[in-house]
Design a protein around this nucleic acid. Structure first.
Length: 398
RNA sequence: GCUGGGAUAGUGAAGCGGUCAAACACGACAGACUGUAAAUCUGUUGGCUUAUGCCUUCGUAAGUUCGAAUCUUACUCCCAGCA
């Protein structure tokens, strides 16, 4: 089996132990890192066409095995020629395993990520644990309530059919509300699932030697416990993974440490992906601690609800005070939206519930984050990361 | 001109003697959103100005009643039918 995938670290920054630039080579092109990977859950970056994605400098996209399994089904996408062909995206693609969705949607909906409250704790313990067993997870479709089951083997089969360049092992997402004992149990389960993910995935690949190579990333859990995070990084590194994803509910206060523990233990020659992060301060933190790629729904989700990024912070364009504001969303932005449309117009589009509102702001927000990460990458090359970080964050959060 | 129906907060629309500052919907205003059940969700929406408080409101005016958006009378306007 030809491994048409590799990561080449380029500039290691003297500013921070693990920070670096690099290039990820995939069968569908390269990704210059650090890179933000827009999320296309259901094979679409919501509100954006592929042309738009190219225009704003999208290097790769990340879709989801859970959603595509439920609709339209992996068999159809395989027939279409794979995820990229299906959605007309010729560049590199990622798919998530579905582990996160199964446990964060349905019974865990809105509770798993930010669960600190007692209510969330109770909800998690009484519902989630009933569905997880050592072999896999039973779950109900969020679409029609029908019963389904995911195991590492099933997730790998789906992702193999979807045909993304980079796939993730099947993991169990835990919540910070879970006990330490549960975190340990779940982590062991995630380890066994990682072994099974590798075995199944490599078996499928050897049975289909003519297909483009698909890389497999192992997912690190372990909540906010240093020993668990380090332990899982060391363990996963013994398996046949091409890279790693750092997952779990990441609190602002501990994210930096968690990533640095993982980076300490992971090999320098394999890429490190951070799952589901994209607020500007988090981006700086993640990259500084050695993250190469990361994905997030936030820029488009927030855009559809009227929030736009600017160099001086995020604001809500729906607000009445922009009714007569004929300046661009961000006066310093050179994206298509900011070059051609005013705040007053976009404010009107939201009030009038016009589809174009979502399109224009999604375009701007994705551009804004992609540009920020691009600027950060250049700053690492030029040895000016710290200066950029300090001045940028000072303005943004002023 | 006659007969019948109707006028409720920004709009539509419940309520038909006390538990009504008045349901609900929309709108408006604000907030949230981090591996997308999210073009979603939450809160506020008469005034005072934050209180198991006071004041002003249900077309206008007068009345019945301990008590009226709710009952009576007159008036004004709107709608339908008849002339």
């Amino acid at each position: 089996m030809r491994r048409d995938f590799r990561f080449e670290p380029l500039v290691s920054s003297p500013d921070a132990r693990h920070m670096r630039t690099g290039v990820i080579y995939t069968p569908h092109g390269i990704i210059r890192t650090p890179a933000f990977i827009p999320v296309a859950t259901a094979a679409s970056v919501k509100a954006l066409t592929v042309d738009m994605m190219h225009d704003i400098g999208t290097q790769a996209i990340l879709a989801n095995a859970y959603h595509l399994y439920l609709q339209p089904g992996p068999v159809l996408i395989e027939k279409a020629g794979g995820l990229g062909k299906f959605m007309n995206w010729s560049g590199p693609t990622f798919t998530d395993s579905g582990g996160f969705q199964i446990l964060s949607l349905g019974s865990g909906f809105k509770k798993v990520i930010s669960l600190v409250s007692e209510e969330a704790t109770v909800a998690i313990k009484s519902t989630r644990h009933a569905f997880v067993d050592n072999d896999g997870v039973n779950f109900k479709s969020h679409r029609d309530g029908s019963l389904h089951r995911f195991t590492p083997e099933i997730s790998m089969n789906i992702q193999h059919k979807l045909g993304a360049d980079i796939c993730f092992s099947f993991d169990e997402l835990t919540s910070l509300a879970d006990s330490y004992q549960y975190q340990e149990e779940a982590l062991e389960r995630t380890h066994r699932w990682a072994i099974r993910s590798v075995d199944e995935f490599r078996k499928l690949q050897s049975e289909n030697p003519d297909r483009p190579y698909q890389a497999l990333f192992g997912v690190l859990q372990g909540a906010n416990y240093e020993n668990l995070r380090r332990q899982t990084a060391r363990f996963l590194n013994t398996l046949d993974f091409d890279g790693f994803g750092i997952g779990g509910a990441l609190e602002k206060s501990t994210m930096s440490e968690i990533i640095s523990w993982c980076s300490d233990e992971l090999p320098a020659n394999k890429p490190r992906h951070l799952l589901g992060i994209s607020e500007p301060n988090d981006i700086f933190t993640a990259i500084e601690q050695g993250i190469d790629t990361f994905d997030c729904v936030s820029p488009t989700r927030v855009a559809r609800n009227g929030a736009a990024y600017t160099l001086t912070g995020r604001f809500n364009i729906k607000s009445a005070k922009y009714f007569e504001d004929f300046s661009p969303l961000d006066p310093e932005c050179s994206c298509y939206t900011c070059q051609n449309y005013t705040r007053a117009y976009i404010n009107h589009l939201f009030k009038a519930k016009e589809i174009l509102a979502s399109i224009l702001v999604s375009y701007h927000n994705e551009y804004f984050i992609l540009k920020l990460v691009e600027d950060i990458r250049k700053s690492i090359e030029q040895g000016s990361f710290n200066e950029l970080r300090d001045s940028w964050l000072k303005r943004y959060y002023a």
